[in-house]
């Protein structure tokens, strides 16, 4: 008794057929690498490298995960990465949200000037060395602050947030709050922030993923190994794998070192891919509903 059912025409059926074929194809394209990585992480590296393992695990072994779980450096890196991501994202939000809100208010004196100055930084960049010197002279080198304070805001995110404020928060609401006696600060904290859950979620995700994946700042600013984030630890293990143990001006000691690193990398390579992306994959579905909404909202202007 399906009243909504409308008989499909032949053309509709053909069209839907195409849609399903195309979707299935797209699904396979994105799904295959995921399955491959999961299978490879529990297969014997020899089977993976020779191409015998191409979809389902072969010669199943959990050796890779065992090594990963026992590796202190990876765990310490994991803890540091979680810390940098949580703390860094917190700092990002603390700076991004008020800035964007201030810039969104038409009655903000000097708004044009500040916006212009912010935008300028998109085109004029200090470059690596001057930035390094600034960070150094601020005394941030080799501290956790070097990981969270430089890049405390990303201009692009400020713009997105500003557009969100401009387009979703009615001016009338602000006026009403002011008439009721709210100061600007109270207005921001009590009214604007509670209304901005979607954009906060989106910003947290943007910044968070950025922190999670970053290794370059750590490489440049950190000397103490106990502060290394996960990505840098993994990079140390995996990059050497790319080097052939046969390049010129090699000494016996180096050849053996690289060989042992290659063996290690071959075993844990796919396992660490999963271990290091799992948290992001787990968090993503919870933020996803905001994510879609947030990006949509940012894109439409009244």
């Amino acid at each position: 008794m399906d009243l909504n059912k409308i008989n499909e025409t032949k053309a509709d059926k053909v069209f839907m057929g195409f849609v399903y074929v195309a979707l299935t194809f797209a699904l396979l394209i994105v799904l295959y690498p995921l399955i491959y990585i999961i299978s490879a992480s529990i297969s014997d590296p020899a089977a993976v490298n020779s191409g015998e393992m191409w979809l389902w695990p072969k010669d199943i072994t959990f050796e890779g995960y065992r090594i990963i779980l026992q590796n202190d450096a990876i765990w310490r890196g994991y803890m540091m990465t979680i810390f940098y991501t949580v703390f860094g994202t917190f700092i990002n939000l603390i700076f991004t949200l008020p800035t964007a809100y201030a810039l969104s208010r038409k009655d903000f004196y000097g708004r044009r000037f500040f916006t212009l100055m912010f935008v300028l930084t998109m085109f004029i960049d200090g470059g690596l060395i001057p930035t390094y010197l600034v960070v150094r002279n601020l005394g941030l080198i080799d501290t956790v602050w070097a990981m969270v304070l430089p890049n405390a805001v990303a201009l692009w995110n400020i713009i997105i947030t500003r557009v969100f404020f401009q387009s979703t928060i009615p001016r009338g609401l602000e006026e009403a709050a002011t008439i009721d006696g709210a100061s600007n600060f109270k207005l921001f904290v009590k009214i604007i922030i509670p209304l901005s859950a979607p954009i906060i979620a989106v910003m947290a995700l943007f910044y968070g993923v950025g922190h999670w994946n970053s290794y370059f700042n750590a490489l440049i600013y950190l000397a103490d190994r106990s502060l290394y984030p996960l990505q840098l630890v993994l990079r140390e293990i995996l990059v050497l794998q790319e080097m052939s143990s046969n390049s010129v001006s090699m000494t016996g000691g180096m050849a053996e070192f690289i060989h042992s690193q290659q063996q290690l990398a071959a075993i844990i390579k796919y396992g660490v891919m999963i271990v290091s992306t799992l948290p992001i994959i787990v968090v993503y579905p919870f933020l996803q509903k905001y994510f879609v909404k947030g990006v949509m909202i940012g894109s439409i202007k009244e």
């Binding site: 490489l219 000397a223 990079r235 140390e236």
Partner: peptide, 8 residues
């Protein structure tokens, strides 16, 4: 001792 990773 300042010992950045050999890879970088």
């Amino acid at each position: 001792y300042i010992t950045p990773p050999v890879s970088d």
